[in-house]
Nucleic acid binder design. Structure first.
Lengths: 365, 365
DNA sequence: TTGAAAGCGCTAACAT
DNA sequence: ATGTTAGCGCTTTCAA
């Protein structure tokens, strides 16, 4: 797709040079390369006339300054890296959108990759990002810790979002206030009269420090504070996958036909709870109340709409980026930044109905 | 976060050099820099012994080759750019995931940004990407055309995904076979007995070439082919935003209480149709059948689950990336790659019920 | 097999 | 205000 008029003679001074460089522009404008650099980097001062000539020459040659050259000189790429478990997860996607919004205002580009919960892959990604000489890293870390220790050792600055791996509490982070969110939600459920409340966790086994763990302990603590007995049997965990969440939900609801409410610790378990309840012909909220952490778009589409805790994914991403790029000087003082989560009360939770009609324990046909 | 033992004397030969370079490694290993380069780039040949020494030295110094240096020399960054309207859109996110999957296998990183339907912003993004010297561009283009003409002129190779701007049909592209998908869905609806079928479009005004336009014409053509009268009044369009889609759906359903089915041209209008139907107390599918293009996760969560056309977003992304990086030689021969879309029949569409009970035309309280 | 040297495109002193 | 020059970290002939 080269500009090459039909009549162009080949071998002529067609200047088929790959891409115009600063040198070409300088020559064309009859100035030194430093001047061209000044014009494009905004540094120093150039007379209006010269600037015009340079700009004209550049336009003429379709010149685009090379970030590679500049980056090499400046020893930074002008981009940041974002590592998430999965870009198709609504929370991650929203978080990423927040980062993009902030990065844009700061003129940085964003390199993304998904680790899919694999610490090895995560480490690999971080390595590549370091090779790219990103100005910083924003991560929604998987289980591992190695990648981040390595990154820190190399001198890369990282900010954690949504969760921080155990032992890395000194690394800057911006999180949702899950503890408060779950507390509020639990109080709401208990206030509605519920006592046998199930907790459908999303904790990946061996992933301490994850938000899910915080949520579970918040759930337990709140129950205790409210004087409600914590039944271990009602607290189950699933891996962050549809199948696992579904299996956990099905097992739970079938095993404990007496529970009256389910608090899903994420949108995946929430989805599972809704599906399973429907398959068991459980009416929501008449037979069972359902609420979840993470207010994804479909929560409002559900019938009835699902009560959920809205965690500010976009803000988390934005703040993390800001913290990474603007406040790079100051370290984490006073621990991680905690952003408030909001309880969105919709129709999926109702008051406890005493004397509930007997329920079948077999699955609906 | 520098390694600096408590007892380290300052000013000593602590070698606080920013980051180890190839030169440092060469010195430490007692070899020339070319050798180190060979070891890390896999080029040329190095004796096993030397290789070991180099690797050891590198490990010792936490050396990471600089993609900046390499990129400058190679005149390419080893990354590709992805431009989508919105990373939080499920379709875009899935597409992006596909690109990431492919890019990973090819050892490329991915820079992503969202244009939010703004051609100006899109052009800006493309410009930055070109400055980064990306090896190529994958775009789910907004309305504009300028950005891509410019990119082509500069010599950047781009592959369109999901839609191709008018006049740029010669640019490689990989699309979902929307025409076939909508045809199938329309036939399905007509086969169910429906005649007054509404089409809730997602076409942004002035965005010809967009999939939405293809869908609309496919809808019309199929209806005609089936001998069903095309009622212009039943074909409405909305901008790709929740509000707009909702407004369009509400207007449509209230204005035409006699329609029996809605074909939403995207997940946003689909969502809107579901919400509006619920607010109007319309039972699905008894009172109204609803189907949509794009099989997002919530389609199965709906009650009843929504019949939809599953477009292979992940594959589209993967193929686009493959086409960009592997088949860069061959141009678009035979037009864009068309990937099949699949009709997922669920419970939201039912046979036309003659003698439907009268319906209110006012909104539910 | 290995090293020396010449840039890749740019910025930042330093000199005019 | 503008030109000269010396690299930034790497790959790649070209010799040895």
């Amino acid at each position: 797709m080269r500009r090459c008029p039909p009549g162009a003679r080949k071998g002529a001074a067609v200047a088929d040079r790959r891409t115009a460089t600063i040198k070409d522009v300088a020559a064309a404008a009859g100035v030194g390369i430093a001047t061209v650099s000044r014009v494009f980097s905004g540094t120093g001062s150039v007379s209006a006339g010269t600037r015009e000539r340079v700009l004209a020459a550049a336009r003429d040659l379709d010149y685009r300054p090379s970030a590679l050259g500049r980056g090499l000189k400046l020893r930074r790429s002008g981009g940041i890296g974002v590592v998430v478990p999965d870009v198709t997860d609504p929370f991650c996607a929203e978080l990423l959108a927040g980062v993009l919004a902030c990065a844009r205002t700061l003129g940085e580009h964003v390199i993304v990759d998904a680790a899919h919960g694999d610490p090895g892959r995560e480490a690999e990604i971080v390595d590549r990002l370091v090779e790219q000489r990103v100005d910083g890293l924003i991560a929604l870390p998987a289980g591992g810790t190695a990648a981040w220790r390595a990154a820190a050792r190399i001198g890369a600055s990282v900010v954690f979002a949504d969760r921080v791996p155990p032992g890395l509490e000194d690394v800057p982070a911006v999180l949702a206030d899950d503890r408060a969110g779950v507390r509020t939600l639990t109080e709401y459920l208990v206030g509605l009269g519920h006592r046998r409340i199930a907790f459908l966790g999303a904790t990946a086994p061996g992933a301490p420090g994850a938000p899910a763990e915080v949520r579970e302990s918040a759930f337990r603590d709140t129950l205790r504070a409210l004087g409600v007995t914590v039944e271990e049997d009602l607290i189950v965990a699933a891996r962050p996958e549809r199948d696992s969440a579904y299996a956990a939900a099905a097992g739970l609801l079938q095993r404990r036909g007496d529970l009256t409410a389910v608090l899903a610790a994420g949108h995946l378990p929430g989805e599972a709870a809704v599906m399973v309840a429907r398959e068991l012909d459980l009416r929501v909220p008449a037979d069972i109340s359902i609420a979840m952490v993470d207010d994804v778009p479909w929560a409002e589409l559900c019938d009835p709409p699902l009560t959920a805790i809205a965690r500010p994914a976009h803000d988390i991403g934005y703040r993390a980026c800001e913290m990474l790029l603007r406040d790079r000087t100051r370290r984490t003082r006073g621990g991680p930044v905690l952003l408030p989560a909001e309880l969105m009360i919709r129709g999926s939770c109702g008051p406890l109905r005493t004397a509930r009609p007997s329920r079948r324990t077999t699955r609906a046909g």
